[in-house]
Design a protein around this nucleic acid. Structure first.
Ligand SMILES: [Mn+2]
Ligand SMILES: [Mn+2]
Ligand SMILES: [Mn+2]
Ligand SMILES: [Mn+2]
Lengths: 224, 224
DNA sequence: ACACTAATTTAGTCTAACCTAAATTATAAA
DNA sequence: TTTATAATTTAGGTTAGACTAAATTAGTGT
């Protein structure tokens, strides 16, 4: 139960969580790509995490890694820090939503539980961050998320953007320019099955066409 | 001019700055004590810092270390982070002055220049932190400090507390209980040369006697 | 000038986290 | 079923930053 996890370990756990959330183990290669690290380094770290007392991941050779309860708890703690920090930076310090990921990714490993609690209550215990990502509660319960990719929306349905799965600052700035941010209402006007282009109207604005590389990263819920 | 300094290096520089501020080189032993590290580790690190391009310290065997201009700049940058963070935690997040040192000592190494600038302007570009320590400006100029130890105040002079040189939480809580905080007015009522006890009145309160272990850590300026 | 002590440095290890190159294993196609 | 390709693991090596124990140096008192 001791909390001596290093920054690299916390980042591994965070990414294993994201990759294995659907139930399928996180693979060496995917982790390596996300962490910006050589696959061999991932194998080494996974074996170490599986050998800790208590183990943070379960692992069988060539089968990828899954979090143990202890590993999941540690991952959710870091994710809570990250998302609360992003929210605080945007809400209280005037950062824009494309500036906060990097900053939060460094701060998340060093803030105390006291700091976590203070910013959470300064923000009114928010449940979602500026990108619409759910923030685990203080008890580490992850809010449920029913949203689905905008890519799947078909005319004439409309929906509300709940979440944007992106960290790349230029991409986030582009989405912002298009009005494709959480809370925006999007109506599907046309879908082209061959190139997967989707024509949409955002918040009563002009019709525009967006490719799958964009619409797959935007998550919506059909409402109204 | 690259900013790849690790957290341990930044902490070394910060402590070398504090120890050599008066002009005398920082000794291996003093650094080891402050950093909570073995003397041999300090020697190794100092030699490394002196060998960097550009060098961050000058060093002659057995003579201790002094900061180079580059080293001083890096140290002041960290100190500015630390003291702005302490101020922010107290002013904006409701921390008490004994809680902030540890937190700031971790955060100081990971905040961006943007973050630094945002909290500085949210605070109105303060020049002193909650303990009265001067905060280097954005241009890394250290505000001058003319204060002297309360230990040197003699009856019937009185003075204002400018600064408290302490990081130990219980000690800081004790000072707070006695009202010995920056801004408080202190009048010397009696001094006992043998035990160095000083009898003082704080802000029109009851007379009290404080030992040298306390009065040497409190810095004052005679005013009025 | 000399020797003792305290401070400092050297030498030799250790661990975490990364790397590259080579070897191995799994999976999918022929 | 065999084989090719891709994924993964192993082997061997590096760097930063710490440690202990041993050797050396500086400074002080005689
Ligand atoms: Mn991170
Ligand atoms: Mn986010
Ligand atoms: Mn620090
Ligand atoms: Mn301070």
């Amino acid at each position: 139960m001791k909390e001596n996890l290093t920054q690299p370990i916390q980042d591994y756990l965070k990414h294993i969580y994201a990759l294995s959330e659907a139930g399928t183990p996180a693979t060496t290669t995917d982790l390596a790509a996300r962490l910006g690290v050589a696959p061999a380094s991932v194998t080494g770290m996974i074996q170490r995490l599986a050998g800790l007392q208590p183990p943070l991941v379960t692992y069988r050779k060539h089968q990828g890694a899954l979090l143990t309860p202890a590993g999941k708890r540690a991952a959710l703690e870091v994710i809570r820090h990250h998302r609360l920090l992003e929210t605080y930076l945007v809400t209280m310090l005037g950062f824009s939503w494309d500036e906060v990921h990097e900053e939060a990714c460094r701060l998340e490993h060093v803030i105390s539980e006291t700091f976590e609690e203070r910013i959470a209550s300064a923000l009114g215990n928010p449940t979602h961050d500026p990108h619409g990502d759910p923030i685990p509660s203080a008890a580490l319960e992850m809010p449920t998320d029913e949203s689905t990719p905008l890519l799947g929306l078909r005319p004439p349905h409309s929906a509300v953007i709940m979440r944007v799965q992106a960290t790349d600052p230029p991409f986030l700035r582009h989405l912002n320019n298009l009005g494709l941010i959480p809370g925006a209402r999007v109506q599907a006007l046309a879908f082209s099955p061959f190139d997967q282009n989707l024509q949409v109207r955002v918040n009563e604005g002009e019709a525009q066409i967006i490719g799958a590389a964009i619409s797959a990263k935007i998550y919506v819920e059909e409402k109204g």
